[in-house]
Amino acid sequence: MLTLVKLIQSLFKALNSEGTPGQVAAGIALGSIFGLTPLLSLHNLLMLGVIFVFSVSIPGAIIGSLVFAPVGFALDPVFDALGGYLLLDVSVLSPVWHTIYGTPVIPLTSFNNTVLLGSVVAWFALVWPIYFAARYGVRRYRETIYERIQRTKAYHFVKASKAYNVYRMFRP
């Protein structure tokens, strides 16, 4: 277990040497797609590549996916209704669905599933609000909470322990 933690930690250290609030917020916003939409989907594989290749915070993406996973579960009925509406009730979109249904590879994304389509559309609508809110939150965290935590005895104690290494994984 510890080896796995260290492996992940070293991977993050190597990949995330710098972490501005914007990068962390971008990581959270992009990572939220893993929580909001059904995880085992082709679009999430694509998003994984984007997160890896672009210099956004990977710990941020993990936080985003963890925070938004329960939100995704809770909003599934809304996604279901939204996807159903888009797929069946919006006649303007009907030719689009018919065309891409017969286009190679695209049907493998399961775009024609009501929950998946609804959640992806919702994520597109939410990605910028999530980004700005996260950027504001990270800034406030670093200016206030993180400064105060650094001055506590518990912080110094934890910092000296291995647990701090784990914590650093999630620090920007």
């Binding site: 995704g72 599934d76 009925p77 279901d80 159903g84 797929l87 018919h98 024609n112 929950v115 998946l116």
Partner: peptide, 23 residues
């Protein structure tokens, strides 16, 4: 367009809509 139950998963399955005229 036709509706079928989505694949079983931890999340809600939803409905798969197929568009026979498109392919």
């Amino acid at each position: 367009p036709r509706r079928h139950p989505g694949a079983k998963r931890a999340r809600r399955e939803g409905t798969d809509v197929s568009f026979p005229g498109g392919s």
